[in-house]
Amino acid sequence: MANAWREEQITIAGLKVQLLHGGQGAPLLVLHGAGGNHGWLQFHEALAQQFHVYAPSHPGFGTSDRPDWMERVHDLAYFYRWFMDELQLAPLSIIGFSMGAWLAAEMVAMYPALIRRMVLVGAAGMKPAVGEITDIFLLTPEEVLQKQFYDPTQAPEYARLYGSEPTFEQRQIASWNREMAALLTWKPYMYNPKLPALMAQVKTPTLMVWGRQDAIVPLNCGALYQQAIPGSRLVVIDNCGHSPQVEKPQAFLDAVLPFLSAP
């Protein structure tokens, strides 16, 4: 029996925030990437069997307000401190995807005591040792989508997410998401040069999950996180691109659920 999830508009620090949440159990914060919040997906539902999953749209994304002072990823980390306080969620676990994983890394550097466990999926934030993080803003949305998946046919929700022509409202939101993502990540593009030093002090149990064929954030960034964060682990999913949670949801859940459920 599926748990009911719902969408609400809440107010945090004076900002209207779009929040999807559902499930029962310990709180689990899901942080979306630069492309924005794609709604309640299969993997949310699966996680909601064991956790109370919170999937907000970051400030400036979706229908969440955009504060004019916010311009770096660590500014989002301040916001999420207020978010956790307001909803009384701490300590909680986090799953971050891509830019959202970079955000999770900034959060754990700022307030480690509030975070139980952390999962970084195809995480931005680290300057690659080899290669480059794909410049998504220089590509058309279609080209970005093409790079995002290794084999779209194996993604069960691909058609639902990308199969039909977006509505005007969806295109408008996508354009604003892109604008906010560019603001947050423009220079240096998609990484924080201080992150290796910050990650070296992390004691929070951390798991990295990467698609082996990730064509947006190179796999070697996963290795850099693993080297930087003491005791962390890197799970690589074969034949998979930048978004394992959508492209190979079962393999993703098999990697993540035991880690998050550990005492």
Binding site: R66, F137, L138, L139, T140, F168, R171, Q172, S175, W176, R178, E179, A181, A182, L183
Partner: peptide, 18 residues
Amino acid sequence: GPAEYWAPPGYLGERKPL
């Protein structure tokens, strides 16, 4: 050239309608 070259995100103004 592609729209992405001529109008990078936000270049046209903050949260402008399409």
